[in-house]
Design a protein around this nucleic acid. Structure first.
Lengths: 347, 347
DNA sequence: GTGGAATTTGAAACCGCTTTCAAATTAGCC
DNA sequence: GGCTAATTTGAAAGCGGTTTCAAATTCCAC
């Protein structure tokens, strides 16, 4: 392809041709198989040769070609991670955790995002499959159950925030119901009776669980569930802002709000602020997720903490177990409420 | 490796063996070369065969093995992206933008993070190289210049937030100096004379530029640069919080603060809030980066907007040009100040 | 209908590594 | 020292594509 141009002098920045395992073998005076064995530790090799090969590798600065390894070995040593939006503090935290969990292993992560669109998610999963990832972690998938099961026949799966049966599927089910229950219970315990709810996107399993938890807490306290106190959001700051405005516009009375995630809580707090309402004096606000920023909002946000980081890390570790053929043991941190300054007891 | 266990009945969830190009060829009654040509559009193929192959691909659900393609073709069709922390709203936005910029091409991104540590960054770059990425985008690199230049002989590079010479290096230099100047000028224009500065990590080219901009603005307005008004942070919320507390503890007077990034501004605002100081009534605050959340802080933050998203997208597009051998034309959005509610005119 | 150019095709080499299999070496033991 | 068993090693066959090169077709003008 590239032809040597005799006219021009050799350029300093010319592309270097890669060092191959064969060159290392020749340099060390052994066969390629031996080099491979040393590289992978797949067999004993006489000590003198090990040293010779190590030296050759160092001298030549050899770096194995991953594509060749994948092709020959049948494993890519990489794990696909599907999220919905790589920005978004929530996924950011999860991804960082997964990266960390994979760190000690030789696997590395391929991050892709589905943007909450089934077609996008499908496309990027195909992408991962064609890259022959050894496993896929689905951090909240939008795909129908049957499709996930079908996918699991191609590659082992770990799901978070979702429960799907399958022998090559492991669920780190971070059921949101108890967390939502916890948050609402807390507000009720603080004497609040008129608690508004800003929900997540409709038809979203996760969001539905949070609504369920809210309802369960109300009914356990014999408080009636009032439709006019519930308004839908979309898990974004702007959505929370708009939702709170809609709520205020209806004139319905409430002393507390539970937002289905922290970002919407931020938006809601701003909307309250704009109307001259002070949190928590006039309205108590609780969020869900405990994003890193939530300790630094004004006021710092009371929110449901589920240890996204632990879940992510745990998912990564479980995935390694899974692809190595061991039985993954999943541990899930407890859901707690981080009580900060956006709530206060009523009266 | 896997041995068929005659005792057990075939399991429904058994791993499917992948469909290969050769199987497609056989199914369609053509040679593998022909299938390859159709796949890549590298040569004309009779229409009847094209249709037969297309049908076979669909029937068999063929998905090319990326490792094989990379090995044979010499290109992996993937771009490495090195950031410092995949969480962090700043990088999140940049990564999402890069992902978007790569979308229309056939390239995909491999994200890795260096955690502000040279050794980590080196390790993950090696990782990318061994994966034979076709190019690397360094979103703020910690590495010494010489090392970056050496790397560029292996793979073409795009740097952001940094300026390094090299024929296979493209810099999207988002010099921070003008932005910092803009922010400080604005505060001065609003009548502020005692403007504190919360800086980024020391020895960080980016952070130094911001300090330079701050100083330049002061001196242009014939205001003296006072050491006691300057305090170091680390680009994190917590760092900004601590920095502001240190500043307040010294008792030094100021009516405005310029924080070298938005996250530190958040922390600073909380510290002010805790001491009963109201933004912007008592102190005006300006940040840098214009993170998505900054429209939703209380009050919404006045901050330097550099269009991280555009930079990221532009970097991705330039990278494609670069690896395809065309000359990249980089466009950089203008740096502007997003004036919101955290600042007010003095008097 | 025919010759020669242009277009389509397939065979085979190769990309760089892993792994099997059998040969070569070394070790162990009587 | 000689024989077997255990350990090391290398040759060679893939892995699943791409690409070159030459053969086979098709096309066109006369």
């Amino acid at each position: 392809m590239r032809r040597a141009d005799a006219q021009q002098p050799a350029q300093s920045g010319v592309e270097e041709t890669a060092v191959t395992l064969e060159m290392v073998a020749r340099e060390a005076g052994v066969s390629p198989s031996t080099v491979s064995r040393i590289l992978n530790g797949t067999a004993r090799v006489r000590d003198t040769k090990v040293r010779a090969v190590r030296a050759a590798i160092a001298k030549l600065q050899f770096m194995p070609n991953n594509a060749a390894r994948t092709l020959a070995g049948g494993r890519s040593m990489s794990i696909g991670v599907v999220t919905q939006a790589i920005d978004s503090p929530f996924y950011g935290e999860a991804l960082a955790a997964i990266e960390k969990g994979l760190l000690r292993s030789n696997y590395s992560a391929l991050f892709v995002s589905g943007h909450w669109r089934e077609s996008d998610e499908r496309k990027c999963i195909d992408h991962l499959v064609s890259r022959r990832v050894d496993g896929i972690i689905l951090v909240t998938s939008c795909l129908p159950e049957a499709e996930i099961q079908r996918l699991s026949r191609t590659v082992p799966l770990i799901l978070t925030g979702r429960q799907v049966e399958g022998e090559r599927i492991q669920c780190l089910d971070a059921d949101s119901t108890p967390g939502a229950r916890l948050a609402t219970d807390y507000l009720i315990g603080q004497g609040h009776k008129r608690i508004a709810y800003i929900g997540g996107p409709v038809n979203h399993p996760d969001a539905e669980q949070r609504l369920d938890g809210y309802k369960a807490a109300l009914s356990a306290a014999r408080l009636s569930y009032a439709k006019q106190l519930v308004v839908a959001g979309d898990y974004s700051d702007a959505g929370g802002y708009a939702a709170m405005n809609r709520l205020l516009d209806t004139g319905v009375q409430f002393t507390a709000v539970f937002a289905a995630n922290d970002q919407m809580a931020y938006g809601a707090m701003l909307a309250l602020h704009r109307r001259g309402l002070v949190v928590p004096r006039d309205v108590s606000v609780v969020g869900f997720d405990d994003l890193p920023t939530s300790s630094f909002t004004i006021p710092p946000l009371t929110t449901v903490h589920r240890g996204i980081a632990e879940v992510g890390e745990s998912a990564a570790e479980a995935m390694i177990e899974l692809v190595e053929g061991r039985a993954p043991r999943v541990r899930l941190g407890a859901t707690t409420l981080a009580v900060r300054e956006s709530t206060r007891p009523l009266r």
